[in-house]
Every structure is written in structure tokens, then in C-alpha cells.
Amino acid sequence: MLRITDLKVNYGGIEAVKGISFTVPEKSIVTLIGANGAGKSTTLRTIAGLVKPRSGKIEFMGEDITGKGPEDIVARKITLVPEGRKIFPDLTVLENLKIGAYLRKDDITDDLNYVFDLFPRLKERSWQLGGTLSGGEQQMLAVGRALMSRPKLMMMDEPSLGLAPLVVRNIFEIINEINKQGVTILLIEQNANMALKVADMGYVLETGRITLSGTGAELLENEGVKAAYLGT
């Protein structure tokens, strides 16, 4: 579904991504793990069109989308749940969700109901300002907002960041649930344990290069991964 070929990205004057290639098959969960500064976020931001790549190719459903702007990317049903959630604090929960469907011209009632079914909390708080939600609720809102664009591919940048373990588990259950309904997921995480458990495929990124790849289960058993990311 998504094919990245030899992608190189400069970010802030340094080469953050130094030629990576990977694929995300349809309806799968793929995770990129790696330490801070490995180039994970840059990769996602490049796919989302927020950063322009220096070279390489990004193909989505057989179409070359390299260097397209974020508007085009969202219109092609790729959506990003940004790092640190980035909900709109002074908009209500409902307005936040509506912004998620900004480029859509059709009726969004069904999608709103779908999101509210997935996160009943958001329905209760639909008139509250986004900024007044707790961290976990904000993450739910960020995911819900992304779902409002009816994505085929949802990219998530560290959804577990700064959340309590119980909330993290909840979020990962939701990720699984969304995936079961046919949404392909590209996930980046520092919480490698959680990410690899849900992932069909995993890639390990180190200083801008992919050093390891395999199924989630394989990577969980890999000695190098264990030592570096799982702490066991």
C-alpha cells in the first residue's frame, strides 16, 4: 500500500533520514522503533507532506506522492496523529473532530457517531474545550480527529507519550480495533514492547538508517532489540 524507496530527508540542516526503504502492506500494523533522533518523526512528517524529502520516492496505492503538500496527502486518505497530540485547545471537542473532516464535502454524521462509539468519553465532553481534557482524553481526541478524515492509512507519532500505563494499554486496544475495521496503521513508538506486540511488521531505525526488520514477534525475540529497546 505504502512503499518508501531510498528516502533521504534533511531536517534543520542535518541529514535526519539517510536513505530508508520499507513497505506498509494494506490492512497491517507496521511500527518503526528507535531512540530519540533516529529519524522516526521526520519520516512520518515527510510522508504527511509537512517536510519535503531531498531524494527518494514515496508511493501510495501505486501512485507517486513524493513532495506533495499536506492538503494533497490528506485528500488521498493518509492522516497523521501528530506527536504530542496537538489538539486545538480553544476549540470544543466537536469542533476539533469537525476540523479532522475539513477536506471532506460529504456528510460526516456517521463518522461522528463512529468516533463517539469508539470513545464514549468524547461524546460526554463534546462541548468542552479541547484544552480542558486530560492527557489520555486528548490522545483519544487526536485519534478521533484523524479518523474523521476516513483514512486508509493512519500514521501515529508516539501515541503513548506521557500517558499512564493503563491509558497506554487502552490506546493500543483502540489501535487494534481501528485496524480490524480496515485502516492500515503506521506507528512509531519509543515504547517498543507495546508497539511490537500489536505490530505485524517492525523496523528498527538507528541514526537515519534501518538496521533491522522483521515481524513483531521476531523483533521481540531479537537479542539486539531486547538489549537496546526492551530493557530485558
Binding site: A48, L50, G69, P70, E71, I73, V74, A75, T79, L80, P82, K86, I87, F88, P89, D90, L91, I99, G100, Y102, L103, R145, S149
Partner: peptide
């Protein structure tokens, strides 16, 4: 106004 980057990521030009 709230968050330019998030707005851009939502497809707002």
C-alpha cells in the same frame, strides 16, 4: 490560531 502544524496536518492550507 491554536496550532499551525496540526492544522496543516489536517489538510488546511
Amino acid at each position: 490560531r491554536d496550532d499551525e502544524i496540526a492544522a496543516e496536518a489536517m489538510g488546511i492550507n
